[in-house]
């Protein structure tokens, strides 16, 4: 089972290696990890997608919580949250295929951000399902390169991971 964790950490050097080191040492599998500064510049937020049953999740959460630089760990249930990932896809495109690819891009509300004689770079933002679908659609044209930011997620409504809940 897949879980999304929002982890608030002190924005200090070395914190990422403490977190990733913990995952490798304890044998937890990270599916994706995205990190960046929050509204408070002293705090960074990591969004970690991890696979495992409830027992693994409980261990991950409590072991993370023991790191001194970790301020809080929240499980973000997919039913009560939105999640997004940004993906750049460099796909082969010549005169014969370009218009078809552009149609697909339109349908998925993605963007073409670079055009070359043999390739297009497409920017897609979406949840796991949408990103997977466009990737499948573009595969037959030849995906030359693909990079993803990793999932970021946020609770719906007024609920926040830093304690606010109305």
């Amino acid at each position: 089972m897949r879980h999304t964790l929002a982890v608030l950490v002190d924005n200090k050097p070395g914190v990422l290696s403490r977190v990733s080191g913990l995952f490798s040492r304890r044998g937890f599998n990270i599916e994706s990890l995205a990190v960046g500064m929050t509204e408070d510049p002293e705090i960074s937020r990591m969004t970690i997608v991890v696979r495992g049953d409830d027992r693994v999740l409980a261990q991950v959460t409590s072991q993370l919580g023991k790191l001194i630089d970790v301020i809080s760990v929240c499980d973000i249930p997919s039913s009560e949250s939105v999640d997004r990932e940004l993906v750049l896809i460099k796909v082969s495109a010549d005169a014969t295929t370009r218009s078809e690819i552009m149609q697909i891009v339109d349908i998925f509300r993605a963007k073409i951000i670079d055009v070359g004689t043999e390739t297009l770079i497409i920017e897609v933002t979406g949840d796991r399902g949408k990103v997977g679908a466009i990737e499948r659609m573009l595969k037959r044209f030849g995906i030359r390169e693909l990079v993803r930011t990793g999932m970021v997620a946020m609770n719906r409504n007024t609920k926040t991971v830093n304690g606010g809940d109305a």
């Binding site: 027992r55 409980a58 261990q59 409590s62 072991q63 919580g65 023991k66």
Partner: peptide, 8 residues
């Protein structure tokens, strides 16, 4: 005292 030991 260590919640991570519970159920480990």
């Amino acid at each position: 005292i260590d919640p991570a030991e519970i159920g480990k």
